[in-house]
Amino acid sequence: MVIPILGIAGNLARKKTSPESAGTFPVTGPLFTTLLVSTIVIVGALTFFPALTLGPILEHLLMFAGKVF
């Protein structure tokens, strides 16, 4: 998994820096924060959701149904 990420990083490092303008992707402010956080949460949650469902989530639901181990 690290290898493709390193690939992207290498690609980005080769890019030249460009000055800011009205056409620049804004990386400050609530919009970008929301975007970044939700991307991390969605991609992260998606990765662990299947395992979590069988673990804590199921256990929680079972507990409410009165089954405890």
Binding site: M1, P4, V43, L46, T47
Partner: peptide, 11 residues
């Protein structure tokens, strides 16, 4: 491709 690998591992 990276995303695909992540999900492949998850599954």
């Amino acid at each position: 491709a990276g995303l695909t690998i992540i999900f492949l591992l998850a599954v």
